[in-house]
């Protein structure tokens, strides 16, 4: 088996994550979709690191994790705030942008 399969897997997981973001209405699950996409990207980074024999890819994956966790913290806080004021975690309800 080739290492490239990891890349294929990463692409598939990334696409599923994207579909989750687009299809689910619950903000929490949408967020999980985002996390899934980030993880898929991380998988690709790790694989590339192995291919090139350098650790930089792994470092980048670590930084992605850091950024992702920061994003999760803020994002979940926002979801909580929205839920508190609207009694709903549906991102379709947060449509004040609507013209």
């Amino acid at each position: 088996m080739s290492l490239v399969n990891y890349i294929y897997l990463s692409a598939i997981l990334f696409s599923i994550g994207g579909a989750v973001v687009l299809l689910r209405r619950n903000a929490i699950i949408v967020f999980m979709g985002v996390e899934l996409m980030l993880n898929a990207a991380n998988l690709a980074f790790i694989t590339f690191a192995r291919m090139h024999g350098q650790l930089d890819g792994q470092v980048i994956a670590l930084f992605v994790m850091v950024v992702a966790s920061a994003e999760v913290v803020v994002g979940l806080a926002i979801i909580m705030a929205i839920f508190r004021s609207r009694r709903s975690a549906s991102i379709d309800n947060a449509n004040l942008l609507k013209a």
Binding site: L22, V30, I91, N95, K98, A99
Partner: peptide, 17 residues
């Protein structure tokens, strides 16, 4: 064009993707 701006974040995300 306004109809595109339906206020749904998911629609915007779809446009982005």
């Amino acid at each position: 064009l306004r109809r595109i701006q339906n206020g749904f974040a998911r629609s915007y995300a779809l446009t982005m993707l």
